[in-house]
Each structure stands twice: as C-alpha cells, then as structure tokens.
C-alpha cells in the first residue's frame, strides 16, 4: 500500500520505529487521505468536477482565504490570534476603492491598500506586544472598529469600475496559472521557509511554547510579535487587492467571516490553538480539503445552504479519523513538524 499521502509526510526516517510509521499517524497524512478520497469520490460522481478547467475556475474562490491563512498560522504558532483579518481586508479594499475613485493610478491604489493593511496590523501588534493586551481582546475590538471605519468612509456604497491593469491581479494568468495562485504559492513557500529554516521561525515556536522562557532567553518577543501582526495586516491588504480585482468592486462588507474560515483552516491543518505547533503543509492540505469539500457539496447537491454544515463536519471528521488511526501523543522534542 503506497497512499498518496506518504510522500508529503514528514521525513524523519527511523528504521526501528514500529509500524504504522509515525508519519502515517500525522495530521498531514489524515488530511491527504481525506483529500484523495474526496477527489476519488468526486471524480466518480461528477467527472467534470475534477477537470483541471473547473478546478482552476473554482480555485478562484479560495485564494484570498488562503493568503490570509498563512500569517494566521504564524500568529497561532505564537499562541496568538487575529480576529480582525476580515475587517482589515475590508478597510484596505475601501482604501483601494476610494483612492482609485480620486484618480490614483492602480499601482498606487494597490500599494496604499497593502500599506494601510500593514498599518492596521501594526496597530494590533502594538496593543498585543507593547501593551500586552490579549490578542483575542485586541483583535475583537479592532474587528469591529476597522469594519466600522470601512463602512463610515465608504458610506457602505460599492466602488466599482477598475482598469484592466488592476483586474489582471485576479483574472490574469502566467503560464496558465492564475496570478493569485502564484501569489499564494510564493507566500506559502516563504512562510514555510521562515517557519522551518530561519531563526525567526524558531523564535515563533519558542514564543508559542513558553513565552516567558522565550523572553528570558533573549528573544525580542515584542518586536517579533509587532512585526508578525503587521505582516498579517499587509497580507490582508494584498488579499483585498486580489478580491477587489476579482469582484471589480470594493465594498465595506468584503471578507465578512474570513477570520473564522482562516482559523478553521489553521486548526484543521494541525496547528495547536495554544501555540507552539503548526506547519504550512498541514495548512495547505487543510485549506484544500475545506475548499474542495465546500465546492463539491455545492456542486453535487446544488443547495447553497449545505455549505454551512460542511466545515464543522470536516473538523469533527478529521479528529475522529485521527483517533481511529490510533494516533498516540507523540513526544515532540522539536515542536515544529514542517516540510516544504
């Protein structure tokens, strides 16, 4: 038996480990099985669903969520959370729309959106890192505040009509791959690299595992957090540019509920909500599973409402399956089990 998931599992090979190999008991493996099973079932029931053309088209619905989920993963790894991502996206989008309306060239408007997103994230970071307010409380407050400002400055009206150079960010392709997909791929590789191969990655895990200890070992905890929340905001700004380009409209209600979807994907991907554990591969598989399940359920049963129960069922299903595989609590000398 050589399941698809094997090649993507963590690669610490110890010849003496009992079967099933720990890799087979990992969250990534479970997700890969579920994903493969879903694609199999979907391919039998709805052959058109698995066609590359359909998949590329439907993937367009997931890029913004995927891009926001990456920094969310890093924040969760530090033991934090950011509930304001949807509102940050909305306010960035409104800034893009308003500056475009006032004659800013598309590149400048997009840069402003990313910049404002970063500034909003930095605000979160300042409260979390410097004033040491719990991120749940900070971002719960800014979630409401940013959305309110977005509605206020735009008067809740849609701002439409962007030039092709902006729409390209969502509708263009390079070598057949949609631009947002490339943006996500680049960010995902960068995130995995930071988490797995850099000192900052070690710091993030250390902060999430035991913050006080991290501080005493000389890790610049406040600076790291400040930068992390700012980066998250900037990613929201980037996602806003892509979303506005996709819908050709900036509106204050964009990204509603995005925070919960992003956190769900992070948790489904195997990250611990208490911090210290999480990896990009798991997140990508989790995102893919959520996306494919949602699209398939909508496709097959043609009832939009069913989507509401899908994510809950997925979370429960994954945990159950993991139990069934007999996952024992693995000792984790190195808390990150990331690859790629």
């Amino acid at each position: 038996m050589a399941p698809d998931g094997l090649k993507v599992a963590p690669t610490d090979r110890r010849s003496s480990t009992p079967w099933p190999h720990p890799a087979l008991r990992s969250r990534e493996f479970v997700l890969a099985i579920l994903l493969a099973g879903l694609v199999l079932v979907a391919g039998v029931l709805e052959p058109r669903f698995v066609a590359p053309k359909a998949q590329w088209l439907l993937a367009g619905h997931a890029w913004e969520l995927a891009i926001v989920a990456l920094p969310m993963l890093l924040i969760v790894v530090t033991g934090g959370i950011d509930l304001s991502v949807g509102s940050t996206l909305a306010l960035s989008a409104v800034v893009l729309g308003l500056s475009h309306e006032r004659g800013a060239p598309p590149a400048l408007a997009a840069a402003l959106a990313v910049g404002v997103g970063g500034a909003l994230g930095a605000t979160n970071g300042w409260f979390v890192a410097r004033l040491k307010v719990h991120p749940l409380i900070v971002t719960l407050a800014t979630m409401a505040a940013f959305r309110g400002v977005a509605e206020g400055v735009s008067l809740a009206r849609p701002i439409s009509g962007y030039p092709d150079s902006l729409l390209w960010w969502s509708q263009g392709t390079i070598l057949g791959v949609p631009v947002p997909g490339l943006v996500f791929a680049g960010l995902a590789v960068a995130t995995a690299f930071v988490l797995r191969r850099t000192l900052v990655g070690l710091w993030l895990v250390a902060i999430g595992t035991e913050e006080t200890a991290a501080r005493f070992s000389g890790i610049p905890v406040a600076r790291v957090k400040q930068g992390l929340y700012a980066a998250c905001g900037a990613c929201c700004g980037l996602a806003a540019v892509l979303l506005v380009a996709r819908n050709n409209t900036a509106k204050a209600d964009l990204g509603t509920g995005l925070e919960l979807e992003a956190i769900t994907a992070v948790v489904l991907g195997g990250a611990s909500i208490e911090g210290g554990r999480g990896n990009v591969l798991g997140l990508v598989l989790g995102l893919a599973l959520i996306h494919e399940t949602r699209e398939f359920v909508g496709w097959h049963w043609k009832q939009n409402e069913l989507n509401l129960i899908v994510i809950g069922a997925l979370l429960v299903g994954t945990v159950l399956l993991e139990r069934l595989i007999g996952r024992t609590r693995r000792p984790r000398p190195e808390p990150v089990a990331a690859s790629g």
Binding site: P20, I33, L34, V41, L321
Partner: peptide, 13 residues
C-alpha cells in the same frame, strides 16, 4: 490499523 482507517475514510466520504 492503516488499511482499516483508509476504509473508514472512504466510507465516510
């Protein structure tokens, strides 16, 4: 366990 889990996974799906 693993084949069993696979079977369960497919059954669920």
């Amino acid at each position: 366990t693993a084949p069993f889990a696979l079977a369960v996974g497919l059954a669920v799906l």
